[in-house]
Nucleic acid binder design. Structure first.
Length: 482
RNA sequence: GCCCCCAUCGUCUAGCCCGGUCUAGGACACCGCCUUUUCACGGCGAUAACAGGGGUUCGAAUCCCCUUGGGGGUGCCA
């Protein structure tokens, strides 16, 4: 049996990180089993679904590297893959159930239902199910009322029996008899309801494994009933734990960024995002924590899910982003940096060689691309501002000597950039001729050359600083020291 | 209310199914130290958990029950 899995989002908003994780697991499982991963759009909530959100979600999935081989945008042998385009299929199947006497039209209005619920004794109020008033209606009677234009929903006759679900992460889950009543499968407007079309589609699309969030666990009993009504075999299930916020409540906007899109805009790496998401509820068999999806795909198994909910905490994501950033090949680094650095930044005016050197250095010092402009500030900033720290350094007797020497050599520079070797010559000169070493040497040089009391290694920073900037800055500093 | 699920360091988790090798391992964060061309990276180290109570057993983080806590469902949302 070849594995077929799907991710079935509702296009009612941006792709949620939890959705991204579910999609990722399905994708990984398909890859591990040599199966097929498909994307199905569940847009039966007409009021909230839009095509824009569908496109945005697909774009985010693509960014994550979760690629489907069947879906609304690419087609496939089991299409259409948009539920709004499958209405007739659901209707036909619902009518089949009516013919089989496993479903029926119900003419009760919401007001009637509400009124009858109120009449119930208070203790039964909580577990109210549809009372089955229309269940016994004859087909003639139903057809007559339908013909007269009366609105009706279609309800499935819920069998009075217990159901057992064998779930890959929960184990055996028992659903006692009477847990649900006759539930709606087709709304009065003719649109199907999630618990119905989801099953029809999984069945017709030959889905073998359903990996989805735990919030669907309780509802699974309704879906089992639909499979049973058709005499179909349900797929295997794996209900994964939910993602929650710091306060252990369902992850929502108040916990910060919850959509994949937001992380994308904040220049997070998709490799870091997928690495992090993958480990929120699943563990690597060899206990590795930094890995790529290509590395983990062959090892991915449905049996290593953790049952408890996981708190989405960006701290570890940040760490992982730094780790993946370091490993990026230089071509990718260049491409990403071009996008992440603002267009008007002098970075863009530099040569390809310079950029390469610059990124090779900074990749080890940043966590995100968005830090790049700020980190590079010292390379292009010729402004100077006196700080208590600098005042202190300038007051040392060694510093004016260093300044005198450096002003001389810097002003005599003829090349656009200095080399690391040149920098070594400077420091050696100060050490050997001026007899200054240790802290006074390096702090002094840093203060005179960068106007900062601290920062990254001068040996790497200075060769990336244009000589022109260096000259302006050093002269300003020298002036201020007098 | 009723039903279902869950419970190991602050966080993500390993171990649990198949009790002993667990004075519970790793990672992030935090703290300390090393490097000192300083931050970061890296290296080393420290603090830190089996929710509580009963069983079963020679022995329980691991099996059973209860309590507590948390989450989900209970829709003509998905």
């Amino acid at each position: 049996m070849t594995v077929r899995v799907r991710f079935a989002p509702s296009p009612t908003g941006y792709l949620h990180v939890g959705g991204g994780r579910t999609a990722l697991y399905n994708y990984l499982f398909a890859k591990a089993k040599g199966g097929t991963y498909i994307l199905r759009v569940e847009d039966t909530d007409e009021a909230r679904s839009t095509r824009e959100f569908e496109d945005l979600q697909i774009a985010d999935l693509k960014w994550l590297g979760v690629h489907h081989t069947e879906g609304p945008d690419v087609g496939g042998p089991y299409g259409p893959y948009r539920q709004s385009e499958r209405k007739q299929i659901y209707l036909d199947h619902a009518h089949k159930l009516i013919e089989m006497n496993k479903a029926y039209h119900c003419f009760c209005t919401e007001e009637e239902l509400e009124a009858r619920k109120k009449d119930l004794p208070p203790d039964e109020n909580g577990s109210y199910h549809y009372d089955g008033k229309c269940r016994g209606l004859s087909k003639d009677e139903s057809n007559k009322r339908l013909a007269a234009g009366e609105k009706a929903v279609i309800r499935l006759k819920a069998p009075a029996k217990t159901y057992v679900l064998k779930d890959h992460v929960r184990g055996e889950v028992n659903f006692p008899e009477g847990m649900v009543g006759d539930f709606v499968i087709i709304r009065s407007g003719g649109l199907p309801v999630f618990n119905f079309c989801n099953v029809i589609d999984d069945w017709l699309m030959k889905i073998t494994h359903v990996i989805r969030a735990e919030e669907h666990l309780s509802n699974t009993v309704r879906q089992l009933m639909v499979y049973e009504a058709f005499g179909a075999t349900p797929p295997e299930y794996a209900h994964i734990s939910l993602l929650i916020g710091k306060d252990r409540q369902k992850l929502s906007k108040r916990h910060g960024a919850t959509s994949v899109n937001q992380y994308r805009e904040e220049t997070y790496l998709p490799a870091a995002m997928t690495n992090y998401l993958c480990q929120l509820g699943w563990s690597h068999p060899e206990e590795k924590d930094i890995f790529t999806m290509d590395e983990v795909a062959p090892l991915f198994s449905i049996d290593r899910f953790n049952k408890s909910p996981a708190i989405f905490d960006v701290e570890k994501l940040n760490f992982m982003n730094g780790q993946h950033l370091k490993k990026l090949p230089i071509e990718t680094l260049l491409k990403q940096a071009d996008q992440a650095v603002p267009k008007d930044h002098p970075y863009h005016k530099q040569s390809p060689e310079w950029k390469m050197e610059c990124l090779n250095f900074y990749k080890d010092h940043i966590l995100f691309f968005k830090e790049l402009p700020e980190s590079m500030k010292v390379l292009f900033d010729d402004s100077f501002e006196m700080t208590p720290e600098l005042t202190d350094i300038f007051s040392w007797e060694t510093t004016p000597k260093i300044a005198e020497y450096l002003v001389g050599v810097v002003n005599n520079l003829t090349t656009p950039f200095i080399t690391a070797a040149q920098f070594d010559d400077w420091s050696n000169h100060i050490k050997n001729e001026l007899k200054i070493k240790g802290k006074p040497l390096f702090m002094g040089m840093r203060a005179v050359l960068t106007a900062q009391g601290h920062g990254k290694e001068l040996k790497f920073i200075l060769p990336l600083t244009p000589s022109e900037i260096l000259k302006k800055r050093v002269n300003k500093i020298a002036g201020a020291m007098k």
